[in-house]
Nucleic acid binder design. Structure first.
Lengths: 247, 247
DNA sequence: GGAAAACTTCTGCGGCCATCGAAGCATCGG
DNA sequence: CCGATGCTTCGATGGCCGCAGAAGTTTTCC
């Protein structure tokens, strides 16, 4: 078949440490400059420039020229999804004992996965919505129930906005630290967007890590029944709260 | 992050033409011998052997020793899913005019995608089920409706069999010839399995192509409203048939 | 306008790795 | 037990490509 060369071309581009670093650095959905990406990949600017032009030519990343900077972002959600898929395979059956560096702890606690939450916060949200029967979660997919639709509307998410193509579907995304599915897709993206909007979470710069604010700690507790053991760091999902969530 | 090297390792393995050929050859879900895979990748047996051991060590493929042959299959559905994801990116925005070789025509007509149908047959099935409101289809996911569940039960598919983990979800899988989503996941696999079981379709050997039998042509027409223009070759999806499908 | 910053292109070097010939090891068939 | 088949290991070769030094181009800032 002529399909193998196509796969090899794309995979070959990603299958190089420096380029893989660039791609994962962009996995938080933001656009970064060529210099920042060079730093992230730990190569010199000229080397990064070559990699960036290759990735751009293959339409894996999209350049965005602004003044003397050149910003790059992932070309499409499909690319992010592909990277997730590769990561899901990479961590599969790998009995990896984690040394748990401080940075890793932070990432594990709460981070952003292209456009939605992942890490313990992502899991906790998925658990909460799942237990309240607002979302039916599965390794193959996820679905928002009618009551869940009402809840999300109340929370300030327009399920019929332009972003949601047709209906109430959301993708299930496999988490690589927790090894459990969480809520992605249009619904997951909207949920995360809303949390940033109302100030529950903030992005930490130069990282995919997410900071939960004081308002967020209270909000997540009251609305989703999620409590945090350490102030703003680790997250522990607790008790189902269909009632309080429907507040 | 330490995630980039993991991605690079996996992608690097797939990003080599010979190995990519091996992987795509296994994408039909069958197990092939080392020799067959060497032939598929157009390399000598000793070269293929090296590639196979690398892929096996990374758990991308699983060896299966039998006599003096050594069979290999994809290690898990997750690997197939990853390859689909890469393919989806590879064909994205690629204005590729297809020369349409005879083999390509055949593949385009009906083929197997790891464990479910793809190509025009897959699309036609998805369209039919979608129009009859038996399945709600989306680029992000798919869902079997209650009436769809009844229909599938009648068709001989046990939705609550071991294969279906929890509920009625099925994955939406992007087709790379038609560029449209079709039905994958546990439901798609069960549907395809059932079609082989009742003799509507047969696998062509050494290929992912699928042959629709005479019984299949009649069955697909009566049950799903799918008509075939050329006997057993190209497929054209036609008219919604909620009634006849529910037969 | 001059200088600095950000990025790119050019160039040569160096290392990794895919490839295949040849030999070695199992397994089947008689 | 012997030859044939299928597959693997070993070794040498060759090519591709990632890499950074140096120089060139565009933009910004004062």
């Amino acid at each position: 078949m002529n399909t193998a060369p196509l796969i090899a071309e794309i995979a070959g581009l990603v299958g190089e440490p420096a380029r893989a670093s660039i791609m994962t650095a962009l996995l938080d959905g933001r656009a970064l400059t060529a210099g920042e990406l060079a730093y992230a990949a730990r190569v010199t600017p000229q080397t990064a420039s070559m990699h960036l032009s290759k990735l751009a030519e293959a339409r894996l990343i999209a350049p965005l020229k602004t003044g003397r900077h050149r910003y790059f972002r992932l070309a499409s959600p499909r690319v992010a999804q592909m990277l997730e898929g590769i990561m899901a395979v990479a961590i599969d059956e790998r009995p990896r004992y984690r040394p748990l560096s401080p940075l890793a702890r932070e990432l594990r606690s709460a981070r952003v996965c292209y456009d939605h939450f992942a890490g313990q916060l992502g899991i906790a949200l998925a658990d909460s919505l799942s237990r309240s029967r607002f979302v039916l979660l599965d390794e193959e997919g996820a679905e928002v129930t009618p009551s869940g639709a009402r809840f999300l509307e109340e929370f300030g998410i327009d399920l019929y906005a332009a972003g949601m193509r047709r209906r109430r579907f959301c993708r299930s995304c496999l988490d690589w630290t927790e090894r459990r599915p969480h809520i992605g897709g249009a619904v997951g993206a909207a949920l995360a967007r809303r949390c940033f909007e109302i100030g529950w979470t903030e992005r930490k710069k130069d990282s995919r890590a997410v900071i939960v604010t004081a308002a967020g700690r209270q909000g997540f507790r009251d609305t989703f029944g999620i409590v945090f053991d350490e102030p703003g760091e680790a997250v522990a999902a607790q008790r189902a709260t269909g009632s309080s969530a429907a507040r």
